[in-house]
Amino acid sequence: MSRSRKPDWLKMRPPSGREFAGIRETLREHDLNTVCEEANCPNLGECWSGRSAGREGGGGTATFMLMGERCSRGCNFCDVETGGMEPLDPDEPANVASAIAEIGLDYVVLTSVDRDDLSDQGAGHFAETIREIKHRHPGILVEVLIPDFQGEEHLIERIVDAGPDVIAHNVETVERLQFPVRDRRAGYEQSLSVLEYADRESDIYTKTSIMLGHGEYDHEVYQTLTDLRERGVDIVTLGQYLQPSRSHLEVQRYDHPDKYETWRRVAEEELDFLYCASGPMVRSSYKAGELFVDAVLREGRSVEEARQRARERSAT
Rank of each mutant, 00 (worst) to 15 (best):
I146T: 15
L225R: 01
I130G: 03
S4K: 13
A97Q: 05
S247Y: 08
M12Y: 09
R70M: 07
I133T: 12
D114N: 15
L105V: 06
G84S: 07
D31I: 09
E220Y: 06
E25K: 14
D255E: 15
G213E: 12
Y222F: 13
L177S: 05
A306V: 04
F273L: 08
L274P: 03
W48A: 12
K287M: 08
A94L: 10
G22C: 10
G22Q: 13
P164I: 04
L66G: 07
S4L: 14
D79Y: 10
H256Q: 15
I167L: 10
A295I: 02
D116P: 02
G104H: 02
V96Y: 03
G139W: 00
G300K: 07
H219P: 00
V166Y: 00
A94S: 14
G74H: 13
R73H: 09
V303D: 02
I130C: 05
Q308A: 15
G187L: 01
E69N: 10
R5G: 08
R158P: 02
E128P: 07
G151V: 09
I156S: 00
R3N: 14
L155T: 07
L195F: 04
E305A: 12
M67E: 13
E261A: 14
G54E: 02
D199A: 13
L66M: 15
R115V: 02
I140Q: 03
Q190V: 06
S302E: 04
T237M: 01
P14C: 05
Y254C: 07
Q178H: 13
R229P: 06
E153Y: 05
T224M: 13
L27P: 03
A295N: 11
R246D: 14
G122F: 03
L66A: 07
H125L: 11
P164S: 12
E157W: 04
I204Y: 00
R182A: 10
N40Y: 06
H248G: 10
I23P: 10
G74Q: 12
T224L: 14
Y217L: 14
V236D: 06
H248W: 10
M85K: 10
S193Q: 15
F20S: 11
L44R: 11
S191E: 08
S16F: 09
P280Q: 06
V181C: 05
M85P: 01
A99T: 03
I167G: 03
C41M: 01
I130P: 03
E157V: 04
S247E: 15
G139C: 06
S191H: 04
E152K: 14
N40P: 00
S16D: 13
E19P: 05
D199Y: 11
H214D: 01
E81A: 15
G239I: 03
V266P: 06
W263M: 11
A62V: 15
N40S: 13
D89I: 02
Y188L: 07
Y107A: 01
L10I: 05
D294L: 00
E290V: 12
G163P: 08
R70H: 10
